[in-house]
């Protein structure tokens, strides 16, 4: 059953990879990378059971966290053009609230 799950995840990864390579817009690529990261987390979890060591679930959890942070950073970059500019904008927004 784990073999079937791994095969299904790998098929999904190949589809994501195709979209990341072919994707015409930036949004296609960002979304495919994020989704690919999720598939990697799932693959690691299944791989742990395939290799008989479910302790790999910890690594899958870490990957989930890193994937989330990386996606936030990419989107922040895409929104503000550079990573440092976003802080200034956020400060301005906070200043308006006061």
């Amino acid at each position: 059953m784990f073999t079937a799950a791994a095969a299904a995840i790998i098929v999904a990864m190949i589809i994501m990879l195709f979209r990341a390579i072919a994707g015409p817009t930036v949004y296609d690529r960002v979304l495919s990378v994020n989704s690919f990261g999720t598939k990697t987390v799932l693959l690691l979890a299944v791989l742990g059971f395939l290799m008989g060591r479910p302790a790999f679930l910890d690594i899958a959890l870490l990957y989930a966290l890193i994937n989330f942070i990386a996606t936030i950073a990419i989107l922040k970059f895409f929104r503000y053009g550079r990573l440092s500019a976003s802080m200034a904008d956020m400060d301005l927004i906070r200043g308006d609230r006061r």
Binding site: L17, A20, I21, G23, V26, R29, V30, S32, V33, F36, G37, T40, L43, L44, L47, F56, I59, Y63, N67, A70, I74
Partner: peptide
């Protein structure tokens, strides 16, 4: 930009391979 995205995928894949 696409190359940067693909390098992220490459890192994820190689990390999975290391595991």
């Amino acid at each position: 930009f696409g190359v940067a995205m693909l390098s992220g995928i490459y890192s994820l894949l190689s990390a999975a391979f290391f595991v």
